[in-house]
C-alpha cells in the first residue's frame, strides 16, 4: 500500500515523477482521434467539444506559471512533457468544434469564409473563425517533421497559442453576452474567471515570486 501511495501520489507530486508517462502520452494521442471522427456522427455535440477544448487549453497554459511559482511541487514540472500531446488534443477538439458548427448550420466551408455578415468583428462567429484558423495551424505543425522544417521559427509560431487564448476568451464572452442579452450579467464573466486567474499567475511568474508551498504549510523540505 505504501509503495502504491509513494508511486502514484507522493512521487508525482513532490518529485515530479509521473508514472506511466509514455503510456499517458500514447493515450492522449489516441484520444485526439475521437473528436475528429465523432463529430461527423454526433455533430450536435459541437458545444461540449468546444468547452472541453477550452478546459484543455487552460490546463496547458496553467502548467508553466505554476511550475515557476510553486518550485517545490515538482508535479507541474513533471507535467511539462505532456504539453505537446495535450496541445494536439486541444487542437483536435477545437477543430472538431468548428466542423460541428458548420455541419449543424448546413454551412459549407467556402460560404463560411466568404459571407460578409460573418466577418463582423462584434460577432462571436468572427472570433471563432480566427480561433479555428489558429487551432488548425497549431495542430498541423505539432509534429517532429514540422519542428525539423521550421527550426527556430517553430517556437515563434507556437507562441500563437497565447493569441489563441485571448481570441477564445473574446469568443466565449460574446457567446455568453449573446445568450444573456447583456454584457453585465455574472454568467458572461464567470466562464473567463480561470483566464483572469491565469493572467494573475503570469504576472506573479514574471515578477519571479516563488512560493515554497511544502516548506510553508508542511514545514518540511522534501
Amino acid at each position: 500500500m505504501s509503495e502504491f501511495l509513494s508511486t502514484y501520489l507522493v512521487n508525482p507530486i513532490v518529485n515530479g515523477r509521473i508514472p506511466h508517462l509514455p503510456l499517458i502520452k500514447q493515450i492522449l494521442i489516441f484520444l485526439s482521434i475521437i473528436p475528429m471522427a465523432g463529430i461527423f456522427i454526433f455533430p450536435e455535440s459541437f458545444r461540449s467539444l468546444g468547452e472541453i477544448s477550452w478546459q484543455i487549453l487552460l490546463f496547458i497554459l496553467f502548467i508553466r506559471p505554476l511550475s515557476e511559482i510553486f518550485t517545490d511541487l515538482k508535479i507541474f514540472r513533471g507535467l511539462m512533457p505532456l504539453r505537446k500531446e495535450l496541445g494536439i488534443l486541444c487542437g483536435s477538439f477545437a477543430v472538431a468544434h468548428s466542423i460541428g458548427y458548420f455541419l449543424n448550420g448546413n454551412i459549407t466551408l467556402p460560404s463560411g469564409f466568404l459571407d460578409s455578415e460573418i466577418w463582423n468583428i462584434s460577432d462571436y462567429y468572427f472570433w471563432g473563425m480566427i480561433g479555428f484558423i489558429i487551432a488548425l495551424i497549431l495542430t498541423l505543425t505539432s509534429n517532429i517533421f514540422s519542428i525539423k522544417i521550421l527550426k527556430r521559427y517553430w517556437k515563434k509560431l507556437h507562441r500563437l497559442t497565447y493569441i489563441f487564448f485571448f481570441v477564445i476568451i473574446i469568443h466565449i464572452v460574446l457567446i455568453r453576452a449573446f445568450n444573456e442579452g447583456t454584457f453585465m450579467a455574472f454568467e458572461v464573466w464567470n466562464s473567463v474567471l480561470p483566464a483572469l486567474a491565469l493572467i494573475v499567475l503570469w504576472g506573479v511568474s514574471f515578477a519571479k515570486i516563488k512560493i515554497p508551498i511544502l516548506t510553508l504549510f508542511i514545514n518540511k523540505k522534501p
Partner: peptide, 24 residues
C-alpha cells in the same frame, strides 16, 4: 499498442459522447 488504441477509443468515445449516445 492495439490494446491501448482500442481501449482508448472505446472508453474515450463513451465518455466524450455519452450524452449524444444516450440521445440516439
Amino acid at each position: 499498442h492495439i490494446g491501448i488504441l482500442f481501449s482508448t477509443l472505446c472508453l474515450g468515445t463513451l465518455l466524450i459522447f455519452s450524452h449524444m449516445i444516450g440521445n440516439r
